[in-house]
């Protein structure tokens, strides 16, 4: 009954606060859209100069996907490379090909080398049938966005729930309403559970909308069941919520709450699979398994990219709910500061 009263109050407050609603719904959608455009943009077209390459040779090459400039003079090519007109040039002299790159941007280097290798490979080896590649998961169409998507989705839910729950609990403390709550017969666990339910409902709506947008509008890869996705996000948002409230007990105002973001939220991105976890140096690799996002990202990828079902994600879910229960208990203990019983 008291839990219900608290849940209803939180829902009323959030619904009345148009800005927070906007922040919860529109901000993730906006950022996901931008990331979609960034990651799924056209492939980079390298600008390559040909120096002294005989026309007979050029005729056999497939010159699509690059802009080619032909030079008669090596010095002119060098000058253009220095001025940034070219990403690289290929020099043909003494029956040898040599490649010179501008070299300051690794992405451009990679694209240039890749193009040169694939274009000149059939020249050296003659015609070769392309390898027949099979995918266990994903497909050749799968882009960066599909791989990062699940992690980003989890991250947004975590980030926004963490901030909003933490800040609203701080407000409860600084305006004195927490003290007033505690001067009623409400129990401490009822406060924490009321918060979890109120924000839990909001997050369910939020994540259902964001996930639908990512999958059905942006076309993010979705192999598994939508229900599992929601289940994982629910578990993650409980963790974010209870952690946000807990962290807020160590902050005296909203600004101090924001200061926790670089310490608590940002590192989770690095250790949750946005970057390849196996390349993280050994003395830091223990951080991943203690961050909630690590488990949520693994489970989301299993469902969205690999199409796995419950048997493959339940361990991650248990860990996430375990985190929530731990934080709930710590929250109840932290509330003892304000009332002993």
């Amino acid at each position: 009954m008291r839990v219900k009263a608290l849940t209803i109050r939180i829902l009323r407050q959030i619904i009345r606060d148009k800005r927070t609603i906007g922040m919860l719904l529109l901000a993730p959608i906006l950022v996901l859209s931008m990331l979609y455009l960034v990651f799924n943009g056209d492939n980079y077209e390298p600008k390559i100069g040909f120096v002294g390459i005989p026309d007979v040779m050029i005729d056999t090459l497939d010159l699509s996907d690059a802009s080619i400039t032909e030079y008669d003079d090596l010095l002119a090519a060098k000058r253009d490379l220095t001025e940034g007109q070219l990403d690289g040039y290929i020099n043909f002299s003494n029956q040898e090909l040599s490649v010179h790159l501008e070299g300051s941007d690794p992405t451009v280097n990679g694209a240039t080398i890749k193009w040169i290798q694939s274009t000149f490979s059939n020249l050296t080896d003659g015609a070769q049938s392309p390898l027949d590649v099979h995918y266990l998961h994903g497909s050749s169409d799968m882009g960066q966005f599909d791989y990062f998507g699940p992690v980003l989705l989890g991250f947004f839910v975590f980030f926004f729930v963490f901030i909003i729950a933490g800040v609203s609990f701080i407000r409860e403390r600084t305006t004195g309403t927490l003290e007033r709550l505690l001067s009623t017969p409400i129990r401490k666990w009822e406060i924490v559970v009321g918060y979890v339910l109120g924000f839990g409902i909001i997050t369910m709506v939020q994540s259902a909308l964001i996930a639908s947008y990512a999958i059905y509008v942006l076309g993010m890869m979705m192999e598994g069941s939508f229900i599992y996705l929601l289940l994982i996000i629910l578990a993650l948002s409980f963790t974010a919520l209870t952690l946000g409230i807990l962290v807020s007990s160590f902050a005296n105002n909203e600004l101090q709450m924001i200061q926790f973001i670089p310490i608590i939220v940002v590192p989770q991105i690095f250790f949750s699979g946005l970057f390849n976890l196996e390349t993280i140096s050994n003395w830091l690799s223990w951080i991943g398994p203690i961050t909630p996002l690590y488990y949520a990202a693994a489970a989301l990828r299993d469902v969205m990219v690999r199409g796995y079902g419950f048997p493959d994600i339940y361990m991650d879910l248990i860990v996430l709910f375990g985190f929530s229960i731990l934080f709930i208990v710590l929250n109840i203990l932290a509330l003892r500061k304000y009332r002993k019983i």
């Binding site: 109050r9 009323r12 407050q13 009345r16 606060d17 305006t175 004195g176 309403t177 003290e179 007033r180 001067s183």
Partner: peptide, 14 residues
């Protein structure tokens, strides 16, 4: 017990 603190402790958005 009815307790009224120094601060008004109201939810201003309600």
């Amino acid at each position: 017990i009815g307790y009224m603190a120094q601060s008004d402790a109201l939810y201003e958005d309600l």
